[in-house]
């Protein structure tokens, strides 16, 4: 393969600089700072710090609230990913079959991705409102049956639905693109071989989608661990009784409400390691079962 080379290295440096600067300022610097804080005891009002080694980590890992936060984060990540990808795949299959009005749906189904997470949270605040929202109809059956601000399980369900709703659009775009890149003649050959649409979906489309499915699992799980702050903050505020206190949200509340900078820094290091480990596991063990054609 032929490659283009720049003769002078300062052009290369100049072209790379803006991107490197952004990554440095918003990722490496804060990460390094967090790493430093995680091993020290930081005073909230300034005025120096003390080196404490692994003390912060020991505190975090022995805190039962932290482990319940991990538990709910895992549930949230798995449920959101499954729900979002299942919905996205179903919708993409329908759009790909060019059912009536598919052009309009194709655009409409992408829009939610452009909505910011806090806005999603606020919108679902209304949807789930036990007094006035759509879900309030449940309360006409039996008053007080639906109230996510009182029942932990309902609160978790609410953030899962809101989180999944936000993720659907992204997965949908990728699923639709992948489905449309399957050659038409393959589907036709399967039709000639006697396979009905559902059979073709299972035998042909799904196996050929495995690279996309794998990619979306990685992205969705990572996103639900790291990008769910906006929804939790606006929808439940971590409650009731810390039931929706996801790891990202706990980092924020411990750090900026509880002024435990060092504990929050330790938690963010743990979260980062967790996401790295998850991604590694997925590439190592799940990707083997993927067919790249």
């Amino acid at each position: 393969m032929r490659r283009a080379h720049f003769k002078t290295s300062w052009i290369v440096a100049a072209l790379l600089a803006p991107q490197l600067l952004v990554i440095f300022v918003f990722f490496y610097w804060p990460s390094a700072q967090a790493l430093y804080w995680a091993f020290t005891l930081e005073q909230p009002w300034g005025g120096g710090n003390t080196w404490v080694g692994f003390e912060n980590f020991r505190n975090v890992l022995s805190d039962p609230y932290y482990w319940s936060s991990v538990r709910v984060s895992v549930i949230f990540a798995l449920a959101t990913t499954a729900l979002a990808m299942g919905m996205a795949l179903t919708l993409a299959l329908f759009v790909d079959r060019q059912l009536a009005g598919y052009r309009a749906f194709r655009v409409a189904l992408i829009w939610p991705y452009a909505v910011a997470a806090p806005a999603v949270g606020l919108a679902f605040q209304f949807v789930f409102n036990p007094g006035a929202g759509i879900f309030s109809y449940i309360n006409t059956i039996s008053p007080g049956l639906w109230d996510p601000s009182r029942y932990p399980a309902q609160a978790v369900l609410a953030i899962i639905i809101a989180g999944a709703w936000k993720q659907v659009a992204y997965s949908f775009v990728f699923f639709l693109a992948a489905l449309q890149s399957i050659p038409r003649s393959l589907t036709e050959a399967a039709a000639m071989d006697g396979a009905r649409p559902l059979r073709r979906m299972l035998d042909l489309q799904l196996p050929l989608l495995t690279p996309t499915i794998f990619f979306l699992i990685v992205i969705n799980i990572t996103d639900s661990f790291t990008d769910s702050f906006g929804i939790v903050d606006t929808l439940t505020g971590g409650g009731p009784f810390r039931a929706t206190d996801l790891m990202v949200y706990k980092i924020y509340s411990d750090g900026f409400r509880g002024f435990d900078y060092s504990g929050a820094a330790a938690q963010s290091i743990i979260l980062m390691l967790l996401v790295i480990a998850l991604t590694f596991v997925q590439f190592r063990y799940v990707e083997r079962r993927v067919h790249y054609s």
């Binding site: 050659p183 396979a195 042909l204 196996p207």
Partner: peptide, 20 residues
């Protein structure tokens, strides 16, 4: 009739083999 009911078999230009 659907393709499967017509008793025809077809060889495609790009072969259309199932890659997986």
């Amino acid at each position: 009739l659907e393709p499967r009911e017509r008793g025809c078999a077809m060889v495609f230009q790009n072969y259309a083999l199932y890659p997986h």
